[in-house]
Design a protein around this nucleic acid. Structure first.
Lengths: 246, 246
DNA sequence: CGCGATTTGTGCACGCCTTCACAAGCGCCT
DNA sequence: AGGCGCTTGTGAAGGCGTGCACAAATCGCG
């Protein structure tokens, strides 16, 4: 899975304001639904059934209906969901209507690619600051944005209203950067460095480790190989190779 | 969470061969333990307690013990785990002792970064083939490896013994590449393209969508903002802002 | 040799998530 | 107006994962 646990979710027993507290698993799927909905909107669809949207998002239709039911009743029985309305709803819930400002720290190999990744801008995020500790890189511009020294990070966070920090530094520098981000008031961090970050409660950290994903695949390759190349014996004893699916 | 479901896991009732079928959640954490163990080995530690390793990997110690118990008994009560032994065990389980050959398709913005990412090689993976459909890019070399046309993908998979394919193309091209990988015999795919891949049962697909992670963080930002900036009233009615933690 | 300190391995209970199955609701056609 | 087909929304059941708490096992020391 490759995600770090979320630091908080206060123990509010009954005083939830006007915000639905969705299951974490549902939240993680909303972006996928959103992408599928945008695709549908481009093809001119005005409504979509749970079955159709579920197929486009690669999930079970019952799961999709339960997920959407947590947001409220935005479907019409016998018809389906209004595509445009649902897009607005999900984007509101995800807070994407605010075009959040993002700081990217570390413009090495990976950071450089992230700085140029257009998937961010197209989904409501603006990378407004690039930072690095290497004097060699400071001053260069990527996609029209100058690379500043990491010492300026704190001031930039405040001045530019940055709410999310992305760490793409080597593992050794990540904790220090995280500390600076937190000190400057950032409460959401996306960490690409292969290390565990320690942050105070109330700060959310999500981790993406590209090598971990490969290792998980490697495990399944190993497992599959050991299943097919059985020494002698009970292969296919109970029939069906490919079950389930989805 | 950003993972696609695994296509298979046959319905083998009782005939599992000589391979432990670990819980999926455990598998996903093994790479993290492995990284922590390598760090410990470099500092000269010969043994480590579950508490110590859990802290280094950012998880609960009970969870760690349960995870490791699934692999067998490799710890000594009163002492801890033998670092070197545990590294060997986990690497064997993950199939990392085979230095798997990986094909990378799509050397655009992100693909270029992946091709140069040294985190792969250091964890037992060799990128042995780069492919792209753009004639502009074919022929160039990245890290000493030439970019070949995607038409050669099928032959290269067979000749070079490639077992894992990484897709870093635009969304529109991803399904076609996946089909070619599967046709050539690849059964594990890591997909960076923002789309759902359809593959036959028995093929594992894992998905990484960088923008999705940001959107999940955005949700939590939105939630936190709506909690602190309550219109009038019941803030702090029930005390503790920061609970749990982990 | 025995005892206490330490740490692993695990039984158990709890909570979250998924999935099925179906009632309730909506629109369309006659 | 009435009925029929289609689709949503949800109650309930089952499975999986987590974390506590403790018994079992090992080491070191007197």
């Amino acid at each position: 899975m490759s995600q770090q646990r979320h630091g908080n979710t206060p123990g509010n027993a009954g005083a939830v304001p006007a915000f639905p507290d969705l299951p974490e698993a549902t939240i993680a799927r909303l972006p996928e639904y959103l992408r599928a909905l945008h695709n549908l909107a481009e093809t001119g669809s005005e409504t979509v059934s749970s079955e159709g949207l579920a197929a486009a998002a690669g999930v079970n239709s019952a799961k999709l209906r339960k997920d959407l039911s947590h947001l409220g009743s935005y479907g019409t029985r016998g018809v389906g969901y209004d595509v445009a309305l649902l897009i607005d709803q999900i984007e509101y819930i995800l807070g994407l209507d605010q075009r959040r400002a993002v700081a990217l720290v570390g413009v090495g190999n990976l950071g450089h690619a992230l700085a140029g990744y257009d998937g961010f801008a197209s989904r409501g995020f603006r990378i407004v600051g690039l930072f690095d500790a290497d004097a060699e890189r400071v001053g260069k511009t990527i996609n029209g944005l100058p690379v500043r020294h990491v010492d300026e990070l704190g001031r930039a966070v405040v001045e530019d209203g940055i709410t999310i920090g992305v760490i793409a530094t080597p593992a050794g520098a990540a904790q220090g950067v995280a500390d600076e981000l937190v000190a400057a008031g950032v409460t959401s961090i996306l960490n690409f460095a292969p290390c565990v970050l320690s942050v105070p409660a109330g700060v959310d950290v999500r981790k993406v480790d590209l090598a971990i994903e490969l290792q998980i695949l490697s495990f399944h390759e190993h497992r599959k190989a050991s299943l097919t190349a059985l020494p002698g014996g009970r292969v296919g004893e109970n029939g069906n190779q490919e079950a389930v699916g989805s």
